[in-house]
Amino acid sequence: MNTTKIINRAIVFGMLLGAIWNATPAIAQVPIRDPHTPGYVVATELPDGTIPSASANGNFIIGPTHDAAPESIMQDNVPQGTVYRFTIDSKDSKIYPGIAREPKTFGTADPANPAKLIVTTSHPDPYSRQIAVYVPKQYVAGTAAPFIVGADGPDDLLFTVLDNLIAEGKVPAMIAISIGNGSGDAQGSQRGLEYDTMNGVYAEFVENEILPLVESKYQVKLTKDPSGRATMGGSSGGSCALIMAWYHPELYHRVLTYSGTFINQQWPYNPKTPQGAWGFHTTLIPKSRPKPLRIWMEVGDQDLFNPNIMRDDMHDWVAANENMAKALAVKGYQYQFVFARNARHVDYKVKKQTLPEALEWLWKDYRPAQSAK
């Protein structure tokens, strides 16, 4: 290739990069946040390479080095659970028949209400989702097992961590149900409809359409005790985890989130929850009696900041998680909040470093109900 062609391609590539940068400045220029910013929660800064104790509540800052915890790595001398996998289609669901937003489209902010996004390119569309079910080696057939439901699955890291923690006696012998989303992302998509909608429908979908399948396919029994049921997820999967427990505390008492999307991403717009998941920390938690929830949260110093076309000041992931910690503290919730330095959105290195401790903390007070035996 001659020099002229190389130069011309370089110029075109540079112009494309510039166009992307200018079109999405909020994404391209993610700020690095200082956890000691005025207005953020007061937090205990830990030495680099250490994480909070599984017995500690409150706010913590972890350093920039994120080495994997030993429990995040498969150990040959530890009993390995069995992982089953299956797929379900939208035609089999009475609750979620399937939607999708047209590629390369987003929506238009309502000029009368910047918190409302008008999406005209969403339409019915079928989907398939993968589901993985982890059954620990220690599970006793016929007994009602505690379990954790995870979003955006399958999550093989979760299964590895559970193998190790269960063997060490740090968490109960629980079943994990890792559910893939219905495709797409954000407003107008199936994933957005499932994860960002402020109601109990997704929890009801799991309860009525997924859990019975798991029990029948793999001859396991899942506890009905909400103290023995947990939810987890990252990003919108994290907001989904809290939404499930918030609207159905009779089903779930434990919530674990990475980079939770506690922002205004709900669609369709609902005047009862006009701020979407941003409303958790502005109105819902502050104005409600405390629910019997135990909540673990993480956010990274380079997490998302994307005001996009809505310009509603409710699309800052770090501020949202900081505000969540403040709201939970005021209401006296049992929670642990980790602010991670040198960490991006749902940072996998941070997850490998912290997930074992997070799960141990989440289940620290668990006592099986008599009826669950």
Rank of each mutant, 00 (worst) to 15 (best):
P154D: 08
C240Q: 14
V206C: 00
G18S: 03
K364T: 09
A230R: 08
L304H: 12
G98N: 10
G58P: 02
I20N: 08
F305H: 15
T3Q: 14
T257H: 00
W278G: 09
R341C: 09
I243V: 14
G188W: 07
G150W: 03
I27H: 04
A325G: 07
A109G: 13
P64R: 06
N208C: 03
E322K: 09
D163H: 00
M297R: 13
Y348F: 13
T4K: 15
P25F: 09
L46H: 09
P212Y: 00
H345C: 01
G150A: 14
H253D: 02
N270W: 05
R341N: 13
D48P: 11
E194I: 07
I20G: 10
S122Q: 06
S288G: 07
G260R: 05
R101W: 05
H123Q: 10
L211S: 03
G228A: 00
Q302G: 14
F13K: 08
F106C: 12
A19R: 11
F205N: 00
L242N: 04
K104Y: 15
N164Y: 07
P212G: 06
G180W: 06
D185H: 12
H36G: 11
T197S: 14
A358F: 00
Q275R: 13
H253Q: 15
D347I: 07
A26N: 12
A327T: 08
T223C: 02
L117Q: 05
Y333A: 05
F339Y: 14
A329N: 13
Y348E: 15
E209N: 08
Y258P: 02
L284P: 06
L117G: 08
P70K: 02
K217I: 00
G332A: 08
T261Q: 13
G150D: 12
L162W: 07
Q353H: 09
G276N: 01
K349L: 13
H315E: 10
P154R: 01
F159K: 05
A151Y: 08
V133N: 03
A68M: 01
E250K: 15
H36L: 15
F262L: 15
R254I: 09
P212K: 01
W278K: 12
T24D: 05
I20M: 14
T160C: 11
A43H: 02
T4A: 14
A43I: 01
Q353L: 05
P286Y: 09
Q75P: 02
K94V: 12
P47V: 11
P292H: 00
P25M: 03
G184K: 11
G39P: 13
R294I: 15
A151M: 14
D155Y: 06
Y96Q: 06
D225I: 00
P114H: 04
R101Y: 04
H345P: 01
N57I: 07
R9G: 13
A10Y: 11
L213A: 01
Q80I: 13
I210C: 05
N113Q: 07
Y202P: 04
F13N: 08
F337R: 09
Y96L: 12
